[in-house]
Amino acid sequence: MPLIYSEDDSTKTAMITVSGKITKEDYDSAIAPIEAFISKHGAINFIEVIESFSGFDPSIILPGLKFDFAHVKHISRVAVVSDIGWISPLAKAAGYFMATKLRMFDLAALDEAKEWVRSSA
């Protein structure tokens, strides 16, 4: 599965790992649990690990934007973890439009990313 979702109640941290192409089914399988996690905790932290990325189903663009607008105010910190070169500038540009604290990490620094995100708990 190209998208794996996990969560940690003790630190209010949700994590998605991406490997490959994201389908509509992958997206749908992660959104409901994330929304439930936000509802449960009010504010959460988020880690997105991008191991590899070969695109996404275009039908998730609009739902993804709606999710972002509705829930970004409930996400305190975001760590984006990837060695893919173009991910960092894209994530940093998106970060300028959000009140959420966003930081980039290399894959080798995943543990550091987890510590940074969870340090706000």
Rank of each mutant, 00 (worst) to 15 (best):
M1V: 11
S54I: 03
V80D: 00
S59D: 10
M98W: 14
I22G: 03
E48M: 15
M98N: 08
D106V: 03
S59C: 02
F37K: 10
M104H: 06
S76M: 06
D68E: 12
L90T: 14
A36N: 14
F105Q: 03
F37P: 07
D106L: 09
P58S: 08
E51L: 07
M98H: 13
S19N: 15
H74A: 10
L65P: 01
V81W: 00
I38T: 05
T100W: 00
L110S: 08
P89A: 07
L107C: 10
S52V: 06
G85S: 13
D26L: 05
T13M: 10
L65C: 08
L110V: 11
A94R: 04
A113F: 03
K66H: 06
V49G: 00
A32Q: 13
S82L: 10
A99K: 15
H71L: 02
F97Y: 01
M98S: 14
S76E: 12
I4C: 04
I61Y: 07
D68S: 14
S120I: 09
I87W: 02
L110G: 03
S29E: 10
V80N: 00
V49W: 04
F69W: 15
D68N: 13
A93T: 13
D111P: 05
F67A: 07
I4W: 07
I22A: 06
S52G: 11
A36T: 13
H71G: 00
D57E: 12
A113D: 03
D26K: 04
S10E: 08
D28M: 09
I22C: 08
D9F: 02
P2K: 09
S10M: 02
G85V: 07
V18H: 10
S59K: 09
T13I: 08
V81G: 01
I75V: 15
F67E: 06
M15A: 12
A30R: 14
R77P: 02
T17H: 03
Y27Q: 10
F37N: 09
V117T: 08
I31K: 13
I34P: 04
K66M: 10
P2R: 09
E115S: 15
S6G: 05
S29F: 09
A14K: 04
E51W: 01
D26C: 03
T11S: 12
F105T: 01
S120M: 06
S119Q: 02
G42A: 08
D68G: 07
I22L: 15
I84E: 10
